[in-house]
Amino acid sequence: MDHLLTTPAIAQGLRKVETRIHKLSASSMLPGITQGVDHVVTAGGKRLRPALALATALALGRAPDRRVITAAACVELIHTGSLVHDDLMDQATQRRGIRTLNADVGDDKALVIGDFMLAKAGLAAITSVSKPVAEVLAATVVELAEGQYLETADLFNRERTQESALRSITGKTAALFRAACLVGALCANASPEDRARMAEYGEKFGLIFQILDDLLDLTASEESLGKPVGNDLRQGVYSFPVLLSGVDVTLTRGMTAEQVAEALDRLRASTMVRDTVEYCRGLAADAVAALPVIHDAELADLLYGLPSAYIARFAATP
């Protein structure tokens, strides 16, 4: 994954994306909103989604011009704005080892700052990229909302199915990875078939990303995770790894630290990790099979290797 981000053409494009993000972030007439957005966009993150947009455009023969850069920046603004809303819903106080926006400025201000970021991304897409790209991003925001709603509707639901969990994470996470690849393909004027193939690749990789992120919440240390472990259990989320494990855990509101620790111990003692990783390997095979013909050997190696490399990176996480 790191190789994708440090490839010269993509690394150079990401520097331009970063500049564009900050220009869009500083465009409010209200200093408080500008400061809030700056707090979020400078809080870390790998910029993986804009990197995928850049890689897709390059793989399909388009250099990262201003339209590609802006489209990639819009994808990241949508992602970051959605994180503000996620933290607000979870009442989280820490992300990536630093205080969340809602913890710093309060729930009401955090809510409108997240809204501002989503709206700004849509406005930049329609005015500075293209109508098709703006339509993709707008439809993706709808999917993000629907995916999050589905998860919220299933909180503390012991009858939640694996299919329901996959449907939720497809909307709340994988849809934006799909969009990142799709807008890169649109900017490259790719054929409808190549656009569809890149979109499928992005969605499958997005599923891997979220499933492993959910698994980390159950297996990683708090230090490596940058936030408390077992948070999904506390929130009542029967995540896909939990459902795949077959372990009968009961999630209730107000679970004590001891109850969370007991549930984590039972899950970790099961075949959850092995089964989840194997499931993700199947998704990785599907993602690679979806890729169109890529003539640039370096970019082909990067995109073909990314899903497996991400799974291997998870295996190395303490």
Rank of each mutant, 00 (worst) to 15 (best):
V288Q: 05
A287Q: 06
Y279D: 01
R281F: 03
Q259H: 09
T271M: 06
S270R: 02
V260L: 03
R268S: 08
A263S: 15
R268N: 11
M272I: 07
V273L: 12
M272P: 02
Q259S: 13
Q259P: 12
V273F: 00
L283A: 07
A284Q: 07
R266K: 15
A284N: 09
D265H: 14
V273G: 00
A285S: 11
L264M: 08
V288M: 01
A285G: 13
L267S: 02
C280V: 03
V277T: 12
A285P: 01
T271R: 14
A284S: 12
M272F: 02
M272C: 11
S270V: 10
A284Y: 06
M272G: 07
D265N: 14
V288C: 05
R281Q: 15
T276K: 05
A289L: 04
Y279H: 14
D275Y: 09
C280M: 05
E262F: 08
G282V: 03
L264T: 10
D265G: 11
R266Q: 14
E262N: 13
L283E: 07
D275T: 13
L283M: 08
A269K: 12
S270N: 03
L283R: 11
E262T: 15
A285Y: 02
R266D: 10
G282W: 05
T271E: 13
A263E: 03
A261Y: 00
S270K: 06
E278D: 15
R274Q: 14
L283Y: 01
Y279W: 12
E278T: 14
A263M: 05
L267P: 02
L264D: 10
V260F: 06
E278I: 06
L283N: 07
V288P: 01
L267W: 05
A287D: 08
Y279C: 05
V277K: 10
R268F: 09
M272L: 11
E262H: 14
L264S: 05
Q259C: 00
S270L: 01
M272S: 04
A287K: 05
A269W: 03
A263V: 11
D275L: 13
A263G: 02
L267E: 07
A284L: 09
R266E: 08
V288K: 09
A285I: 00
D265L: 14
T271K: 12
E278H: 13
T271P: 02
A261S: 15
V277A: 01
D265E: 15
A269N: 09
Y279V: 00
L264Q: 11
Y279S: 04
S270G: 04
E262I: 07
R274V: 12
V288W: 06
A284G: 08
D286M: 12
A287C: 06
V277W: 09
R281Y: 13
D265S: 15
Q259W: 08
A287G: 07
V273S: 04
M272Q: 06
G282H: 12
V277M: 06
A289Y: 04
L283F: 00
A263F: 05
A261P: 00
E278N: 14
V273R: 13
A285V: 11
A284V: 01
T276W: 04
T276N: 10
